[in-house]
Amino acid sequence: MVREQYITTTEGTHIERPENQSVYKIGIYGWRKRCLYLFVLLLLIILLVNLALTIWILKVMWFSPTGMGHLHVTEDGLRLEGDSEFLFPLYAKEIHSRVDSSLLLQSTQNVTVNARNPEGEVTGRLKVGPKMVEVQSQQFQISSKDSKPLFTVDEKAVVVGTDKLRVTGPEGALFEHSVETPLIKPDPIQDLRLESPTRSLSMDAPKGVHIQAAAGKIEALSQMDIVLHSSDGTLVLDAETMCLPKLAQGTQGPASSLQGLYEICACPDGKLYLSVAGVGTTCHENSHICL
């Protein structure tokens, strides 16, 4: 145990105290005190300025319990009202407008919409520029409101799913390669023209080619030859009047020149020519035309 000793004094007992006792003051005095007060005052001023700036930012940005300015947080996501400007890319799963308004995407350069796979690679891109609309994808498809494909494009073919494809250009349609279709017809008041300015025009069908002009005429013009060929069948020219105005004509005899009657003769190569009609055939007399 610790033994405590107590020294008591009684009357008549004198205890000598040490001389030169030092007095220590507790606290901050002098220039340190002034610097501390100045530092506390500076912190108070900074706090008031920050509080004022925070209130000003909240007022300018229109912060509210439901969002910020025209941006409102709802159960379905974010709702943005009015015109908005995005300075950086926008990532969203779905963007749609209100029921009573349209969705407008506008840019001074171009508007680009990208679709990426889980690895981050671009699998589809829609780029609307000032001079061209560009689509990069494996397949491009336009569908109707009932999900019926109207126009489909891929690397192998172009499919038009509508009942009628109408070309309204004044110069018609230009095809660099073959065209396969069951029917070609113009507007009711327009003429149908099939033209190949520098090459030949060929129409092939496994069961025949049907050309019909219900209220007009059919005209075929060619710089070279017009060939009507039937591999297994008969070529029939059925008309009330048939006119061949530029057939080669054989020499007329003096006795028959006034009759004005001719017979049509055919060369071995199929060439047709006129020969003066007689009691019998006169084709052999003008066969020199076939030479």
Rank of each mutant, 00 (worst) to 15 (best):
D269L: 05
D83C: 02
H288K: 05
A52M: 07
L194V: 09
Q21S: 13
Y37N: 08
N20I: 11
L48F: 09
L247W: 14
W31A: 12
L48K: 06
L42M: 14
V179N: 00
H177C: 03
L90Q: 01
D163E: 14
A92W: 00
G169H: 13
Q252H: 02
M203T: 06
S102W: 05
T168S: 00
I45K: 08
Q249V: 05
V159Y: 08
E180A: 01
S84K: 08
D269C: 00
K164V: 12
N286R: 02
W62N: 15
N286P: 03
F63L: 15
K145W: 12
I226C: 02
G67Q: 03
E16F: 13
P18I: 04
W62A: 15
I28M: 11
L126F: 15
I15L: 15
A266H: 11
Q259F: 09
G208M: 03
Y37H: 10
Q190I: 11
E75M: 10
L87N: 10
Q138E: 15
L247E: 10
D225Q: 00
E219Y: 12
V133A: 12
P130S: 06
V128N: 10
L104K: 05
T112G: 03
P18Q: 03
D83V: 08
I7M: 13
D232H: 08
R98A: 14
V158G: 00
S178M: 06
V128R: 07
R32E: 07
L258N: 13
D238M: 05
Q106C: 04
I264D: 03
K33I: 03
A277Q: 06
Q190P: 10
Q136T: 09
G124M: 08
F140G: 05
G278Q: 05
L58H: 08
P197R: 07
T74G: 15
S287P: 02
V153H: 04
E85G: 02
P170Q: 06
V236F: 04
P206K: 12
G120I: 04
K148P: 00
I26Y: 10
